[in-house]
């Protein structure tokens, strides 16, 4: 914590060491989960808990291949499909919400409707609402319309969940831009399309990626709706995770930890790559540079 003779807001390797220790303590539960993924069943539930052990990859194998009790041969599980489903569903719905949200946000920012603020408020309320309020009607609706168990059903639902904050976030980025420049471009004969794609979008690219990461984190682990509305073909990983909990022999912590670890990798890397933008996005764009 030596601060003398150094530029304000900068610190050296000593500071890195201190924060790393604190960071590791905070990270410890995650580390423990990752370690558990490499443990045998006995090691996972050893007393006292084991920090050092002979690692095994068995849990990772059994995520994708399950030994059949009757024949003894190994049989592929559907976990690969579930990983694909999770990536496909979360990616598509967050992307879709981003496109639809950007168009709406642009309109709310540049061509206000009558009752603009009321619309925005209603839109935000739908995001704040406890999911349990709508789960029964949505469940009935999906059954009646045949959307239950389809990709489109769950994708549209997640898109709807992501639209409110996408609009709010992206609108605040549009609000930061100077509309006079756009007007000048219009005077010079630019089409509306060129103003939008050529001037506005490039300037808020950072904001768009923040919205993407933020939405992805919130959608990635959604459980309740996925549980009720996905079928065998469209099941996502959080639902599959919960399904490993049941069973006569209790929770298989090693297997669960292996799934958690694998499932953490994609979201971790996306967040790492877009970290700086996330920092900006989380404040609803209220911090101006």
């Amino acid at each position: 914590m030596v601060r003398k003779h150094r530029e304000i807001g900068k610190a050296g390797w000593g500071y890195t060491a201190t924060t790393s220790i604190i960071g590791f303590i905070y990270f410890f539960p995650v580390l423990w989960i990752i370690l558990t993924a490499f443990k045998t069943r006995t090691d996972a539930l050893a007393t006292p808990p084991k920090l050092f052990f002979t690692p095994t990859l068995d849990n990772f194998t059994s995520v994708f291949y399950r030994a059949s009790i009757t024949t003894g041969s190994s049989q592929a599980t559907d976990m690969g499909l579930y990983f694909f489903n999770s990536i496909f569903i979360a990616g598509t719905s967050v992307g879709l919400a981003l496109i639809v949200g950007t168009l709406a946000a642009y309109a709310f920012s540049r061509f206000p409707l009558r009752g603009n603020d009321t619309y925005l408020f209603i839109i935000l309320t739908t995001r704040m609402m406890p999911p349990i309020v709508v789960i029964i009607p949505i469940f009935l609706m999906f059954r009646l319309s045949g959307l239950a168990g389809t990709y489109w059903g769950i994708i549209l639902l997640y898109t709807a969940f992501n639209i409110p904050f996408s609009i709010w976030l992206i609108k605040s980025f549009f609000d930061e831009l100077n509309p006079e420049i756009e007007d000048a471009a219009r005077m010079d004969g630019s089409t509306e399309g060129r103003v939008f794609f050529g001037f506005c979008i490039p300037q808020i690219l950072a904001g768009l990626s923040a919205t993407f990461v933020f939405g992805l984190i919130l959608t990635w682990n959604e459980f309740l709706f996925a549980l009720l509305l996905t079928g065998v073909e469209t099941r996502t990983v959080p639902v599959a995770m919960a399904r490993t909990l049941g069973g006569e022999v209790g929770v298989d912590y090693g297997l669960l930890a292996a799934i958690v670890t694998l499932f953490l990798i994609p979201i971790f890397f996306v967040t790492f790559l877009l970290q700086n933008q996330l920092l900006r996005g989380v404040t609803f764009g209220t911090v101006k540079k």
């Binding site: 900068k10 390797w13 890195t16 924060t19 995650v30 959080p238």
Partner: peptide, 24 residues
């Protein structure tokens, strides 16, 4: 709030809990 070496990586350590599922 300070800029220090490897800040991006140390920051990831504390951000990870948010990315776990409620179930796990």
């Amino acid at each position: 709030a300070k800029v220090f070496p490897l800040r991006r990586i140390v920051l990831m350590l504390v951000l990870t809990p948010m990315m776990l599922s409620f179930v796990s």
